[in-house]
Design a protein around this nucleic acid. Structure first.
Lengths: 115, 115
DNA sequence: TATATTTACTACGACAGACGTACTACGACA
DNA sequence: TGTCGTAGTACGTCTGTCGTAGTAAATATA
């Protein structure tokens, strides 16, 4: 299975995480599983990347954290919910994606040009 | 005109530069102009980014440099030509792009999900 | 002829996001 | 008893990009 390198995905982790928070709050472990599932195993986010993205995005006001105190066994779990600012950020990143895609495709040669 | 942020394009500068070297050798200033033109002004690569990419890619064996000695006026101009390794790199990056595109699109919500 | 702009770089340091490695801690299961 | 899955945290490193600045020849403009 081909994998995606970090430099290529860089700049999209925000959009990926925010997408999963659009519908419901979630937490690190769950999000990492969902990224794996939704990408059909093609992208597996590193734990450190994910958790540092949470910290960064909370600082930027894109997400808010809250701790689930009621978990059976008293285990801590930090949830994140997307803010309105986060939704706006998602929208603008989505537009930027469209643009970026168009630009990059101009630099993709078809097989013939590669010989 | 919307612009593309560096984090989003990061990882694609190699592919962009190599694409322009597929057909003929070129040099920094020319490549930067061609990127601007081909992207219809949507992406303007920073000089420092471009020249450091040259250095890196030559170290990696993707390109080779040679100096044009015959220029009128004696001005130095460093040309780069793509190597076979570079062509292979381009091909694999192109495949990675296809994959990355598919993955990211799974995390792009349509307007309805954004409310 | 003097000045500004374009061409064509180079040097150097800073920054941010991603990564590697390591560690903690609880519960379930065999 | 030990391993696996869950759910993180800490800390330092690396890499590509960027900001700022400077050099210098060629060409255009006044």
């Amino acid at each position: 299975m081909a994998e995606i390198s970090s430099d290529v995905i860089r700049g999209y982790n925000d959009i990926i995480i925010l997408y999963l928070l659009l519908s419901k709050p979630s937490y690190g472990y769950e999000i990492s599983k969902e990224i794996k599932t939704l990408s059909e195993g093609k992208y597996i986010i590193k734990e450190t990347t994910l958790y540092s993205a949470f910290t960064r995005m909370e600082k930027n006001g894109f997400i808010e954290s809250f701790v689930d105190e009621d978990m059976a066994g008293g285990k801590k779990r930090t949830y994140y919910r997307i803010t309105e600012t986060g939704r706006e950020h998602y929208r603008s990143k989505r537009e930027e994606w469209t643009l970026t895609k168009e630009v990059i495709e101009k630099f993709i040669a078809d097989e013939g040009a590669l010989v």
